[in-house]
């Protein structure tokens, strides 16, 4: 009985959090890449993660959909205990979309096929239904006319927008972005950011690893600064830029804002 009550209280507490990390630790061999990471992301919140190269940003975001397993601590995503051995990874990953720095589109499939593969094979949608939804999504990211093109025929910005549509196709509750604009030519960065900004305004819960501070300012609710596997500072964007106190944060900010 007591266990039961605790369990119920536990999930109750989780309802106001979409993502929750408690004392998460992760090692790559002898390298301690995440150190006691604790964080929370509320529904419809947009969290921006920044920090120097090698600080563990990718690792952290990849733990959310368990592309990386953790050594200790707890991760809850929409009430699911991600850290547990028997966690339902398929269900978790249908609720969480992921956008990679290198796009990772399937080169042997058209843009539309990239978008509809998972809905057809995982959600068991009818191909025609999935295609209709896929076309809507491609229109939403501004490349309806590229549905039949293969990734190699698309620009970097277009490929990344297809990748975002692919992530959205499973109608996820959360979207994760790992440096979505870092591999893009400068003139294509905005077309991708605009799609992400619209998504944020539509109320999507988002975790975004990026150094695009304009994006953080416009739609970010909090900025998380990481260094050497630790979360050094968490603050709303305005406060983060104006009055960051930590000296490591200041050093980092002076570097990225100077160019």
């Amino acid at each position: 009985m007591v266990e039961n009550i605790e369990a119920i209280a536990g999930t109750d507490g989780m309802d106001s959090k979409m993502i929750q990390f408690r004392q998460v630790n992760k090692w790559f061999g002898s390298l301690h890449v995440l150190r006691d990471v604790t964080l929370e992301v509320a529904p419809s919140e947009v969290a921006v993660i920044c920090g120097p190269s090698g600080s563990g940003k990718s690792t952290l975001i990849r733990c959310i959909n368990r592309l990386e397993p953790i050594r200790s601590g707890e991760i809850f995503v929409d009430g699911m205990a991600v850290h547990e051995r028997n966690a339902d990874l398929i269900r978790l990953r249908t609720e969480v979309g992921f956008v990679f720095q290198q796009f990772n589109l399937y080169p042997h499939m058209t843009a539309l096929e990239n978008v509809t593969l998972a809905p057809i094979k995982v959600r068991r949608q009818k191909p025609a239904e999935a295609a209709a939804l896929g076309r809507d999504l491609l229109a939403k990211v501004g490349i309806a006319e590229k549905a039949g093109s293969y990734p190699a025929q698309l620009s970097g910005g277009q490929q990344q927008r297809v990748a975002i549509a692919r992530g959205l196709a499973m109608q996820p509750k959360i979207m994760l972005f790992d440096e979505p604009t870092s591999a893009l030519d400068p003139e294509m960065i905005n077309e991708v950011l605009e799609v992400m900004i619209q998504l944020a305004k539509d109320g999507m819960t988002m975790v975004v690893v990026t150094h695009e501070m304009g994006f953080a300012r416009e739609v970010g609710h909090k900025v998380i600064f990481m260094d050497e596997g630790q979360i050094v500072e968490t603050a709303p964007p305005e406060q983060f830029f104006k009055s960051a106190r930590n000296e490591r944060t200041l050093m980092f900010l002076s570097k990225i804002l100077s160019h």
Binding site: I90, F98, N104, Y106, L117, A169
Partner: peptide, 27 residues
């Protein structure tokens, strides 16, 4: 086949054999 292909397929919820069947083996 680049690791990212398998990760993308896994991240979208495909099971291991589906990742192989639809993404990895065709390439």
């Amino acid at each position: 086949i680049p690791r990212g292909q398998i990760e993308a397929a896994a991240a979208s919820g495909l099971r291991w054999w589906q990742q192989m069947r639809y993404v990895v083996v065709p390439q």
